[in-house]
Design a protein around this nucleic acid. Sequence first.
DNA 1: CTGAAAGCGCTAACAC
DNA 2: GTGTTAGCGCTTTCAG
Lengths: 354, 354
Amino acid sequence: MSVTIHQVAAEAGVSPSTVSNVLNGRSDRMLPQTRERVEEAIARLGYRPNGPARQLRTGRSQVLGLVVPSVANPFWGTFARHLEAAALRAGHRVLLCNSERDPARERDYLEELWADGIRGVVLCSSLPSLEHVLPLVEQGLTLVAFDRTAQAGDPPSLVNISVDNAVGAELATRHLLQLGHRRLAFVSGSLRSVNRRARFRGFEAALEGFGLTAEDTVVWSGAADHDYGDLDFPDLGRSAARELLATGRPPTAIVALNDMCALGIIAGARDAGLQVGTDLSVVGFDDIVLADLASPPLTTIRQPLPAMADAAFAHLHAGVGGTSGTGGARSGGGSLLLRPELVVRSSTGPAPRA
Amino acid sequence: MSVTIHQVAAEAGVSPSTVSNVLNGRSDRMLPQTRERVEEAIARLGYRPNGPARQLRTGRSQVLGLVVPSVANPFWGTFARHLEAAALRAGHRVLLCNSERDPARERDYLEELWADGIRGVVLCSSLPSLEHVLPLVEQGLTLVAFDRTAQAGDPPSLVNISVDNAVGAELATRHLLQLGHRRLAFVSGSLRSVNRRARFRGFEAALEGFGLTAEDTVVWSGAADHDYGDLDFPDLGRSAARELLATGRPPTAIVALNDMCALGIIAGARDAGLQVGTDLSVVGFDDIVLADLASPPLTTIRQPLPAMADAAFAHLHAGVGGTSGTGGARSGGGSLLLRPELVVRSSTGPAPRA
DNA sequence: CTGAAAGCGCTAACAC
DNA sequence: GTGTTAGCGCTTTCAG
C-alpha cells in the first residue's frame, strides 16, 4: 500500500541498508553522491518510514503518553498544548488519555501505553500514592508525575514536577490579609490529593503569620460523600458560596482551590446579590485563560505551564532529569518545584468595613 | 524486556499460534480446556500483546488521530474528551494534534499519522478546501472533517460532521429580534472558514425575515491583516466591543462567532461600563462549560458534542458512515448536519428603550 | 483441533 | 563505502 524502504533502495540503485543509513543520519561514512541519490529517491517517492516497523525493531517510540484528569478542563487543555508543542519540536507526538481522576483508569491507560511501546508518560495525578502504577515503572517506564510532589515510597526514578502549592496558597492568602480581611474561607473538594493538602497548609501558614486562629476561618470541603469530578469544580464553588454566605458570620474573602472553583464562587456570590471585589474577595489558582475574562477579572496564582511542560518533556526525552535550563526552578532529588506567582486583578479588594 | 507470545505459549504448553488464536477470538475451534490454559498463562504472566508488532503484521491500528485547532480552547478540549470516550469504549486510543489552524501543520500531522499506521483521523478544520490533505485520502486514509460542511471538490469518501451553523446563527439572531432589538452587530474574525460564513448567512437570513436592511446592522470582522488564533477569540471580542460601543450609534445586541468571543465582548462591555443583559445583549455559540458561569451567564447556541463525537468515531470505526442511530441528525451524502439548540440565559434581555 | 513457517518494514552488526 | 543477513513480536495460511 505504502512505499517501502526497498522501493526507495531500488529507485536509488542502492541497498535498503544504505537508505536506512541516510534515514538515521549515518551519512558521514558514505559518498555524498550516494546520499543525494537516496534523498532524491525519497523525495520523488514521497517515502516516509513506517513507524510501527521501526519501533518494533528499535524498541523506541516517537510517541509519548499524557494522562490528565480531563482535557475538558481548560487548565489541562492548556498544559496538553504546551506539552505537545515541546514534543513536536523534537519530532514526537502525544497520545492523550483522560483519567477522570480514576486510579484504575490511570493504571489501565499506562498499561495500554506500555503495550503500545510507549516508554515515556506524563501522569497528571495528584493521588498521594502511585503504587497502582509502580509495576510499570519497575519494568522501565519513564514516568513524570505532574502536579504532585515527592512522597515517601515513591520509586527512586520518579520525577515530580509541580508548582509549590503551599507557597502559592500562602501568597494568595497573604494578599487577602494585607487587604485587611480577617474572616477567610478556604474552599476545596475533599483534601485527598497532595496538592490540595499543600494548598491548605499554605493557607494555614499565612493565617498563623498574622496571628489568626481557626476561629476566624472556615474550611469548606463539600459534602464528604460526594466526589466532585474535574468538571464539577464550578458547581463545588457555587455550592460553597451559597452555604458560606448564608451563615451568620460569612467570610469576607475566599481562597479557592483553583480557578474553575473560583468562577463558581463568583457565580454563587452573584446569585446572592454580592459584588465580588468589594463585598467579597475571591482568589483562584492556576490562571487559566478565562481568569482574565471573568467578571470581575480573577485575582489568582499563576502556574508557569510552558516551563513545566518543557521540563516534563525534557526529562522524558533525555531519560534523565534536565534540571538545568529551567529558569527559576528549584530542584530536589530529581523533582522540580516551580515558584508560582500572584496575579492581582479585580476579584479582590479591601475588606469591607465591619 | 516484556513478556512475549512465545513465553505465554511455553507457559501454557501450546504453540504461539494457539495463543494468537485465543487472543483474536478464534476460540470456537479449540478445546475449552486449551483456551483456559492459555488464558491462565496470560493472566499469570501479565501478558499484553505488543501493539507495534501486531500492527506491523495486520496493518490495523488501535489508535486514531484527532487534529484540532487548539485543545487550550475549552470547546476543543471538551470535544476531545468525548471522542476519546467513544474510542475507549471500543478499545481505541486517540493521538492528539494541535494544528493552530495552520494548513501546513494539518498536512504534516496527517502525514505523520499515516506513517505511524493510523488510518482514521478526525480533522477539525473549517478551511473551505481540503486539497492539502487529498493525497492521503486517496491513499486510503479515512477522514472525518468536523465543524465543516461538504464543499464542491471534496473527495467522495469524505464525511463531514457539523452543526447547522446557519440555523444556529439564525436562532440566535431571531431570539434577539424577538426581544425587540433592531440594531444588531455580528462579530467574527475573518470570514474565511466555512462555518463562519454559514453563521453569517444565518444572521442575515434572520434579519431579512424581520425586514431589516444592512443599514441597521454592523459587521465587525477585526483588523483584516491580523490573524486571530484560537486563543485570541476573547481579545477579538474585547476589541470588537470597544470599537462598536464607541460609535455614534452602537448596537444594542451582538451575535458573537463563538462563546470565547462572546466572553470577550462581555468583558469589553463591562470595561465600557455597560450592563450586559440590560444595556447590551450578547449571544454566543457552542455552549462551552464556562458559558453558564460567566457574569451574566451566557445565552448561546449549543452544539450537541457528545452525539457528534460518537458519530465521528462510529464512522471511523466502521469505515462506513453510520448515519442511523444518531437521533435528530439530518444526513446528506455521507455527511451529518446536526441541529443546534438555543440556550437562553441572562446575557440577553429586552432591547433598551430608545 | 493444533503446530510449523513465512513475512509485515525496518535496523544494525558484520561481511565484503 | 555498501550490501547481506538475521531477526524485533505477531498473525495467518496451510499441513498434519
